[in-house]
Nucleic acid binder design. Structure first.
Lengths: 72, 72
DNA sequence: CTGTGACTTTTAGTCCGTG
DNA sequence: ACACGGACTAAAAGTCACA
C-alpha cells in the first residue's frame, strides 16, 4: 500500500505551493489539523470524500494528488 | 461529494472490459463481493488502500479510475 | 450474478495535550 | 508551525441471509 504516501507527498507539495499551514488547510477543508499532518505522513488510510475535500481546498484536481513523481 | 460516483462508474466500466463478475473481482482484490457492488453504486466512501487494491486487480492506474467522462 | 438491509469489527477522524 | 501521543466518537471495513 503505497499510494497513501504519494498522496501525502503531493498534498504537502501543493499546500506549500499555496503557502498554507496544516492548520489553515485543515480549516479550509473542514478536517482536523492533526489529521492533515498524519495524512501527509502517509499514516492514515484516507477516504475518497476527504481526498476530494482536500483537493478542493488546494484547488487542484484529484488526479493531480495521485501523480507519482518518481524519478530525478 | 461526487467523486465516489465517478469511481464507481469507472470500476464498473473496467470490470466489464475485463469480463469479470463482481464476485471474481472481489476475489482478485481480496474484498467481499457485496462491498464491490456497493462501491460501484457509489454507496461506500471507499478508502485509498482499497481503491489501490481494486486498481491493481483491474490492472489500471489509480488515476484512470478518477477520470471523469462527461459527455452525453 | 447482483442489490439490499442489517449487523459486528476495525479504523478513520476529533480533541485534548506535550515537546 | 509541526510531530506525536492517549482517549474518545463517527464512520469505514467487512460479512451475511435473502430477494
Amino acid at each position: 500500500m503505497r499510494y497513501r504516501m504519494v498522496l501525502g507527498k503531493n498534498i504537502h507539495k501543493y499546500r506549500m505551493k499555496k503557502g498554507l499551514s496544516q492548520e489553515k488547510l485543515a480549516e479550509y477543508c473542514g478536517l482536523h489539523r492533526t489529521y492533515i499532518g498524519a495524512v501527509e505522513r502517509g499514516e492514515r488510510n484516507i477516504s475518497i470524500d476527504n481526498i476530494e475535500k482536500i483537493a478542493n481546498a488546494l484547488e487542484v484536481d484529484v488526479t493531480q494528488l495521485f501523480h507519482n513523481e518518481r524519478g530525478h
